[in-house]
Design a protein around this nucleic acid. Structure first.
Length: 463
RNA sequence: GGCCAGGUGGCAGAGUGGUUAUGCAGAGGACUGCAAAUCCUUGUAGAUCGGUUCGAUUCCGAUCCUGGCCUCCA
């Protein structure tokens, strides 16, 4: 089977074919770095990481250009900097660093390139000049505005025509705009705000232009896959499409538009005013990164998904189950020829990233692994399980560290644990089960689970 | 008002015109001094009303309901 993807532009699942045979260019909208990333930001990171992994598998990592930008010019950043009386890089640098830390715990592969808006202002200016030259933009009072009426295709991505968009306008419209739907490409900066010299005076770019400029610079005039959250369809991606295609009408801007669904928290939209804003960092305090990942991948990427305790407990139990089945074969070496993912997992993922169906097969492999006794079959199953899970970015950790490392400050050392286990086993030998159970109780309170077997007693942390 | 998604068992969540999804939780059993883990058994769901069909959770229509977008947003 070949990769099929649901294209927002056509509202249909389509077989994926890149423009240039054997080469793929994918652009995903990355974070605006004014604050810690939240779990809603984590969803596209994880979803497009899985897409990246299956593209790498088919095309080779050297043939997939995965661009994920960092937007480090933005009025939210400016406001935060003004409020604290510091320069914007004092806001953006630590935020970028935190973002990288957070998503590495989610086991997301680094993109091929991660361009920053601040490094691409001249490209944006060039693009704006091109739009003015082609009569798609006009200058007023130091602003440069995109003229939506000059673009007959405006609205085609979000499935609306200009009339429908205008009927929905509910924000006060700046008087210098020709049409209420016109949007800003460039705006002037006063001396308190960061600014760049331009043909229109010192100023800064509008919201959408950075993605048009950076995708063109790093992929080209036509990008194969453009991804992001559902809420970016309008206006962000609609405007990007308009800018890119109007400045270079010889090419379609994007072949496949892919959008992930929303994430709610306890059934409600996440927002600062509701106080239900969950950062990735908060989430990782009491949940392993892979449990977050499993939670996200447990639903189809286009379906809505709700963040709540019960769901997270389920994800935690499920990931533990998978690691547990690997623990039983942790010393078994898998020959390279067995390190191949299951066809069922590949087919599921290639069918518009059906991660729940892929997980079903992964659970089945784990279950077979638990039951199997023949060494050769165990080796095949272990190879298939790990290779399949790695397409989803799961089961990537060392088995011992999964069960024996703890993020929390340990209130007991491994030596103490071993001593207690020795003591308990002596008690068991003497059939002093009261003492044995007492010791089990002590360790249980410290968050340690003991497992007796004919090969001795093993311990692990509750996770 | 316009546009777009959905409504599946206790929870989460897929595929599918006719046979067990799967995971978590629950119940019973095996194993164990007790546990844990694992294995076995178990649940008979598809918003409502029509239609098509030998047969519909799956196709079609209507109704009801929920969520999202309509220039802050992943």
């Amino acid at each position: 089977m070949t990769l099929n993807l649901y294209n927002t532009l056509t509202r249909k699942k389509e077989p994926f074919e890149p423009l240039r045979k054997g080469k793929v260019g994918m652009y995903v909208c990355g974070p605006t770095v004014y604050d810690l990333a939240h779990i809603g930001n984590a969803r596209p990171i994880i979803v497009f990481d899985v897409l990246y992994r299956i593209l790498i598998r088919s095309y080779g990592i050297e043939n997939v250009q995965y661009v994920r930008n960092i937007t480090d010019i933005d009025d939210k950043i400016n406001n935060a900097a003004l409020e604290k009386g510091i320069s914007i890089d004092k806001i953006t640098e630590p935020t970028i660093e935190a973002f990288h830390q957070d998503i590495s715990e989610l086991n997301a592969l680094p993109p091929t390139i991660e361009p920053r808006a601040t490094d691409n202002v001249s490209e944006m200016i060039q693009l704006i000049q091109e739009l003015i030259k082609r009569n798609h933009a006009y200058e007023v009072n130091g602003h440069v505005i995109f003229d939506v009426q000059s673009d007959p295709k405006y609205g085609s991505l979000s499935g609306q025509n200009l009339e429908q968009i205008l009927s929905g306008v509910r924000v006060e419209v700046a008087s210098y705009k020709r049409s209420p739907a016109d949007f800003v490409l460039w705006k002037p900066s006063d001396k308190n705000l960061p600014g760049w010299d331009s043909p229109w005076g010192r100023g800064r770019p509008g919201w959408h232009i950075e993605c048009s400029a950076m995708s063109r610079k790093h992929i080209g005039d036509c990008i194969d896959i453009h991804g992001g959250g559902l809420d970016l369809i309008f206006p962000h991606h609609e405007n990007e499409r308009a800018q890119s295609e109007c400045s270079f009408p010889e090419s379609r801007f994007v072949r496949y538009w892919i959008h992930n669904g929303y994430l709610t928290v306890n059934g409600e939209k996440m927002s600062k005013s509701l106080g239900n804003f969950v950062t990735i960092r908060d989430a990782l305090c009491n949940l392993p990164g892979e449990a977050v990942r499993l939670f996200i991948l447990g639903s189809h990427y286009r379906a809505p998904i709700d963040w709540n305790e019960r769901q997270l407990d389920q994800a935690r139990s499920s990931i533990n189950r998978l690691y547990t089945s690997l623990r039983n074969v942790k010393d078994l070496n898998v020959h390279e020829s067995y390190q191949i993912p299951s066809d069922i997992v590949i087919d599921a993922l290639e069918d518009d990233l059906n991660t729940p169906a892929a997980l079903t097969e992964i659970y089945r492999l784990a279950s077979l692994l638990n039951k199997e006794s023949s060494c050769d079959k165990l080796e095949r199953l272990k190879g298939a399980l790990i290779s399949s899970a790695q397409l989803l970015g799961l089961l990537d950790q060392d088995i011992n560290s999964w069960f024996l490392d703890s993020k929390e400050t340990k209130n007991i050392s491994t030596d103490e644990i071993d001593t207690l286990i020795l003591k308990r086993n002596k008690a068991r030998k003497d059939r002093d089960f009261e003492e044995a159970d007492h010791i089990r109780g002590i360790l249980d309170e410290k968050g340690i689970i003991l497992e007796d077997s004919e090969h001795g007693t093993k311990w692990r942390w509750k996770r």
